[in-house]
Design a protein around this nucleic acid. Sequence first.
DNA 1: ATGTAC
Length: 482
Amino acid sequence: MLKKTFKKLSQYEWEIPKTYRSDMRVAVHLFASELLLEAALDDLSLEQAVNVTTLPGLVGPVVVMPDVHQGYGFPIGGVAATAFPHGVISPGGIGYDINCGVRLMSSSIEYTEAQPHLAQLAAALNAACPSGMGKAGPFKLKPSELDAVCRLGAEWAVKQGMATTEDLRRTEETGCVDGADPRWVSEHAKTRGSDQLGTLGSGNHFMEVDVVEQIFDPDAAQAMGLMEGCLVLQFHCGSRGLGHQVCSDYVQEFQSAVRRYGIQLPDRELVCAPMDSPEGQHYLAAMRSAANFAFCNRQVLAHLAQRAFEQVLAGKIRRFHLHQVYDVAHNMGKIETHMIEGKPLKVCVHRKGATRAFGPGQAGLPEEYQAIGQPVLVPGSMGTASWVLVGTETSMAISYGSTCHGAGRVMSRSKAKRDVRGDRLRDELEQQGIHIQAGSLAGLAEEAPQAYKDVDDVVETVSGAGIARKVARLRPVVVVKG
DNA sequence: ATGTAC
């Protein structure tokens, strides 16, 4: 797409007007600096955003985040809100990794004190948290147990002694989205998920120990238990093969639904169905089941990681307890109420590679975050910084309570694999004092920092546009990847 | 993202 297509609204906001193409129902609103706009022009992500504007039932502009890149049908880094219940829901607007998300845990362990033990900690985390493609975890769930995970989400882990009620309170949707019904999850998806609870996966999924490097908002940092110079644990993963199969199943099933409901689409990958149709209802029930599987997966991983910390640091470090800061979803369709043209309206917010970023005072936020807004967790690319932000009143007003989710890819996986030597990259990161545990050197190369945008630029944009506020910057010291 | 093509 050409830069002249965009109308500049402010330093960090650009618009593709509705007049750009005759089938657009709404405009595209992109958050980007000049530099990030130019990066976004290099792939098909903005054409995809224009395609999304043709979906029936949109209530306002399709919003695009600065970490945008091309995805299946919808761009990764896109947000679209459709009227509930007559508007459509589209699996491609949520993504193959349903409820892919990030969890952050704080500690009072000082980096300087823990530094001699970090290599051992990296190995212990790698041993405790299975990672890699198709990797099985510590449990083989019977069908009735898997159904319970899909219905209960992270609460299932409380019953198993792997979670506390505080963990749930500090999880988006308290770790369980309503309306999940595993009867609409295929047997195939259930089979794939049955041994994957408590696993990290591959690709850009990771587990990381970071040091809190700089605090920008002391009040918010204090509410979250973040202290400069102390270690935190964060990880990024989702619903594994189960969610992937749910998305595949419904993308296929929706092909005929599109014809049945007479929906015109510029791209088959945008397949969708009205939320109040049987197809839409079944997908919602299955997608929510996969979302709960992912919440439970992150809860189990948190438990396994905590045990690894105890195993390595007990007796060496005075206090090693990890406290949940928050757990966010960045691939999800949620029914929420937003102010649309001055009136509250129930909508389905499709967030694909976009983080919910509720501002202060929103229902559903735990008491300690009511005044500061929802914690937003933005991991950078491997070996680079990550950010903790909070949602704002502006994000509620102009981005359906959403903000960015990461650095955003700029180089294809195949090109990164050609250009980057995994062994050299590992050595470079080790030289920077980052302990790496990598299941696959080819996988490591695909995630090289040069394959991603600069997360600091992305955060500068969302912060400058006002759709999130900076709380803390984190620096990695241990990275575990599949 | 993903038993990376039934």
